[in-house]
Design a protein around this nucleic acid. Structure first.
Lengths: 234, 234
DNA sequence: TGTATATTATTTGTCGACAAGAATTTTATC
DNA sequence: GATAAAATTCTTGTCGACAAATAATATACA
């Protein structure tokens, strides 16, 4: 008898498959590795991850639940499109969540929260320094998400994180070239926000968050307007 | 050859199974037919609906995504508990959503929206008249959900509907006996809210929605406090 | 009798296969 | 050659079965 390789290699822990597929697909969607409209093929994914279609499908059901993919019955499933027509509803929600989460952070944060927030702010400042637009987007989102966590309201953090994800996707569309940069001013505004949170000044937290959010929305709109002009010109 | 019944009976349309299970479980959870903590057995459901476990599981994954059930890996899955400890976060979110959706309705509603809203208000008034507490809860939720729809912001309506569902579950816990009733005053407040929406008076919409929301929160808290006393007394 | 270990049973996660529905290609008819 | 019908291919939804993880029970031992 020859030494047959009974290949116990595929040792992947039971239940870890769906999470792996979910996390990876989620990242690829948010990073636009899978741009909006990309078809998603179950069998292809099954081969890629060397597992059956069942766990793949579970991951897809979850992603569909978060609105990251669209599934037409009995037909193809694809990466969800970005709804540019109703962009203003996105901005409305984003500004409001910026405000309310910052206010709650001022009210309910604990000392250890500030450490986390400051760490994210340091990363954001570094990204601005390096003029790395993609890193700016990611670290800015992480910064505000950390503030929201300090506010300790799961309903708000849930919606807010979703909005930040959607924003990340929208901005990726425009920052592919790394040639633009958020102004230094945003770094200073972040520092001010940290200060009022630490101070537990709720009113001022709301005011600064509102200004900051509107700045960011304005920046995004400017960006889109510029691209629109380019599109028309072509 | 005998006439063998090839039994083409189970004719359930392909893909309709998951929706059926999802809808029914959702209703049973929100109506407390399945109270918080109830174990959910896949094979039992499979037998009940005469289908395999696969579509059952898909429905469960969706419900888990909405936080209506909790799934411990490799172990049981059960109806999600109601988080009474962090109730204030629920109230915060609810009040804010009442306000923002009412404001947006004043801003963006179309004539046909008002018809729908008024129809729901009529049902609510009827429930109050009949002193049917459970119907009051349901029709009140439908009324405010319709207002939110008129505001046309999917991010807000999504969160708001979730909050209303959770509220429905909480209130069912206390209104099992049908012996209580929401005051007639809420009917009048609803009428006032409809009026300011129709008037497109955004500031006043916010003010009335805030007052109304706080009334409702106050009512719920009073209810819970009373039950607490009872619990302690026993 | 109480605790630790081994055995059994139950339930979940994964798999491969099959069938239904839609898209695509081929064939037939004018 | 164009259109309609039929056949084929391809993808998804569902199924029954099996294996891993856990819970429950039984057994051994002090």
């Amino acid at each position: 008898m020859t030494d047959i390789d009974t290949s116990p290699i595929p040792e992947r822990k039971r239940g870890s498959g769906v999470k792996m597929v979910y996390d990876l697909l989620r990242d690829e969607i948010l990073d636009l590795v899978l741009p909006p409209g990309s078809p998603i093929d179950e069998v292809q994914l099954a081969e890629r991850f060397k597992m059956s279609r069942t766990p793949i499908r579970e991951a897809l059901v979850r992603l569909a639940g978060e609105g990251l993919i669209d599934t037409l019955p009995n037909r193809s499933t694809m990466v969800a499109n970005i709804d540019f027509l109703n962009m203003h509803t996105f901005f409305d929600a984003l500004v409001l969540m910026y405000r309310v989460t910052t206010k709650l952070a001022a009210q309910y944060h604990r000392p250890e929260d500030l450490k986390v927030i400051r760490a994210h702010q340091a990363e954001f400042a570094a990204a601005v320094q390096a003029q790395d637009a993609l890193a700016m987007i990611a670290t800015n989102a992480a910064f505000h998400s950390a503030i929201a966590e300090a506010g300790r309201n799961a309903y708000f953090t849930g919606l807010f994180n979703r909005l930040l994800d959607e924003g990340r996707r929208m901005l990726r569309l425009y920052y592919q070239s790394y040639d633009d940069r958020l102004p230094q001013r945003f770094v200073e505004e972040h520092d001010d926000i940290i200060a009022v949170i630490a101070n537990r000044d709720i009113e001022e937290a709301d005011r600064l968050a509102k200004l900051h959010a509107e700045q960011i929305v304005h920046q995004i709109q400017k960006l889109f307007a510029r691209e629109d002009r380019l599109d028309v010109a072509l």
